[in-house]
Amino acid sequence: MPAVLSEIDPAALPMATATGSSPSIVAVSTAAIQANTSRMREVCAAPVMAVVKAGGFGLGAVRAARAALAGGATELGVATCAEGIELRRAGIDAPILAWMLHDDAPVRAAVAAGVRLSPTSVPQLGRIVAAAGALGVAAEVEIEVETGMNRSGTPRADWARLFEAAATASASGLLQVVGVWTHLSGTSPAQFTAPLAHLDDAVALAGAAGLRVRRHAAASLPAAVDPRTHLDLVRLGASLFGVEPTPERPLGLAPVARWQTRVSQTRDVCAGESVGYGQTTITSATRLALIPVGYADGISRRSSGGGRAMTVTVGGRRCPLIGAVSMDQSVVDVGDAPVTAGDRVILLGDPARGEPSLAEWSSAVGTIPQEVLTAIGPRVARVVGA
C-alpha cells in the first residue's frame, strides 16, 4: 500500500474550519488519489475516466480531479451539468462527461463550457442540439443505454429512434456522438455477460444509423474483477478514493482521508449513569470524552450502541462511541485513559496506523464506504493534507 496518507502529520495540521463553527477537519491526501489512479490504471490496462461527482465523493471535486489526472486519468466523469461547469471554471480542460439531465439542467451553459452530455431521450437530445445551434458549436454527447440497471439509460425500445435523431444532428454539424455506454448493475462476471451483450447490440444499432462510437461500461468493481468490461474506457470513482473493489482481494489502494476533531470536555461518571438521549446506555465507572461531531456531521446514529459500537482513536488508543449520537455531539468512553479537553481524536484514517478505516465505518453502520465519505457534513472543513 502506498504510504501516502500516513505521511500526513496530524499534529501539524491546522484545526481551523471554513466556517469556524467546528474544530473538525478532513485532511485529504491528493497524493493518495494520484497513487490510486495509477494503481487502477495498472490493474485495468485501459484508459481511465476519473469519476469526481458529488464534490469528489465529498472531498473536493477540483482537487480530486487534478490529482486523478496527475495519476494518469485522461477524462473526468460527473453526475450533473453544474459539476462539469465547476471543473471547467477551475481551469480543467480534460474531457468531462456529465450524465444526468433534467428539465432545469443548464444545458446551454454546459455546451458552452465544452462539457460532454449524455442524452437518454429524443427531447433531451433536442435541447442539446438547440443549445449547440444557438452557440454556433458542435456539442459532444455519449448516449447511455439501459442494459439491466433500470435507472437512467435509454430503454431498448427507444434506441433506434434516438440513434437516428443523433445521426441526423451529427450530419448537420451540430453534434458529435462520441460514445454509447451503460452502467452495470451486477457484482460478478456472470452478471456482466448479458449487459455487455446488450451494449454490443446498441453499438451495432448505432453503427447501422451511421454513428461510429466508443463503448464503456465498467465502474470500479467490474473493472477490477472482469477484463471483459474494460472495453474502450473504465469509469473509476470509489477506487480512486481508497475503496477496495474486492476487500477480500485488496489491490493495495491507499486511504485518502483523515477525519479528526478534538475533545471538548471530559467527565468521570459512576456506574449506573446513563449517556445520551433515551437512556439507552448505562455505564460502568469510567471517563467520558465529548466530541463536537454528530449525525449532522456524518456520524450515523447507528455508530454506537446495540453491540456494534464504532471505535475512534484518542491519544493513540481505540475507544468506543457510547450512547445515542446527537445531532452535533457524540460521547466516547475513554476508560481510565488520561484524556483531557483539547486532545486529538481520529474518526477516520489509516488502518496501517491503527486508525479507523472506511471499511470499519461502513460495516458498523451497515452501508457502503462511499456513503460514509459523502455523508461527512459541510461543517467539517476539507483541507489538503498531502
Rank of each mutant, 00 (worst) to 15 (best):
Arg308Asp: 04
Asp297Leu: 05
Pro378Val: 10
Thr311Tyr: 09
Glu42Cys: 12
Asp103Thr: 01
Thr261Ile: 10
Ser172Gln: 13
Leu240Phe: 12
Ala289Asp: 06
Val28Pro: 04
Gly278Thr: 10
Ile25Val: 13
Val365Ser: 04
Val372Asp: 11
Gly315Thr: 12
Ala35Leu: 15
Asp93Thr: 14
Pro369Ile: 01
Ile368Asn: 07
Asp350Ala: 02
Leu125Pro: 04
Phe163Leu: 14
Gln34Arg: 14
Ala238Arg: 15
Ser264Asn: 04
His216Asp: 01
Ala359Cys: 13
Ser188Ile: 13
Val372Ala: 12
Thr367Asp: 01
Arg308Phe: 08
Gly323Trp: 11
Trp361Tyr: 07
Val52Gln: 15
Pro195His: 00
Ala35Glu: 06
Cys270His: 07
Ser185Asn: 11
Arg353His: 02
Thr374Gln: 13
Ser29Met: 09
Val177Leu: 02
Arg127Phe: 09
Ala131Cys: 11
Val26Leu: 05
Arg212Lys: 08
Arg151Ala: 04
Ala35Met: 10
Leu373Tyr: 08
Ala190Tyr: 13
Val4Arg: 11
Val256Tyr: 07
Gln370Thr: 08
Ala171Tyr: 06
Ala224Lys: 02
Val111Lys: 06
Val263Phe: 03
Cys270Asn: 13
Ala254Ser: 09
Ala218Leu: 01
Ala98Trp: 00
Arg301Trp: 15
Ile322Lys: 01
Glu142Gly: 06
Ala157His: 02
Gly385His: 09
Ala157Leu: 00
Leu5Trp: 08
Ala68Pro: 10
Gln329Glu: 06
Arg267Thr: 11
Phe192Glu: 05
Leu59Phe: 13
Thr182Ala: 00
His216Ile: 14
Gln279Glu: 06
Asp226Glu: 05
Ala110Tyr: 03
Thr229Met: 07
Val107Gly: 03
Ala138His: 03
Arg66Met: 07
Leu125His: 02
Ala224Glu: 00
Ala105Asn: 14
Thr30Asp: 10
Ser6Ala: 09
Asp200Gln: 15
Leu76Phe: 05
Thr340His: 05
Val334His: 01
Arg212Glu: 07
Ala219Thr: 07
Ile368His: 06
Pro195Thr: 05
Leu211Phe: 01
Ala46Lys: 11
Asp328Lys: 11
Thr246Arg: 02
Arg302Ile: 11
Pro247Glu: 09
Pro320Thr: 09
Leu76Lys: 00
Pro195Asn: 01
Thr187Tyr: 03
Val365Ile: 13
Cys44Ala: 13
Val263Glu: 05
Ile376Gly: 06
Pro14Asn: 06
Asp226Ser: 13
Arg63Gln: 07
Ala271Asp: 10
Ala381Trp: 09
Arg353Cys: 01
Arg215Ile: 00
Val334Asn: 02
Arg39Asp: 13
Ser264Thr: 05
Ala296Met: 14
Gly56Val: 05
Leu288Pro: 04
Thr311Phe: 09
Leu358Val: 01
Ile8Arg: 12
Arg214Ile: 04
Ser220His: 08
Ile33Thr: 15
Val314Asn: 00
Ala138Glu: 13
Trp361Glu: 03
Gln260His: 09
Ile291Arg: 08
Thr280Phe: 14
Pro106Gln: 01
Asp328Ser: 05
Glu83Ile: 10
Ala194Trp: 14
Ser357Asp: 14
Pro247Gly: 14
Arg228Lys: 12
Ala238Tyr: 07
Ala206His: 02
Gly298Asp: 02
Leu97Gly: 10
Pro47Gly: 00
Val28Phe: 06
Val28Ser: 09
Ser274Phe: 01
Leu373Phe: 08
Ser172Trp: 05
Gly307Gln: 03
Gly242Thr: 10
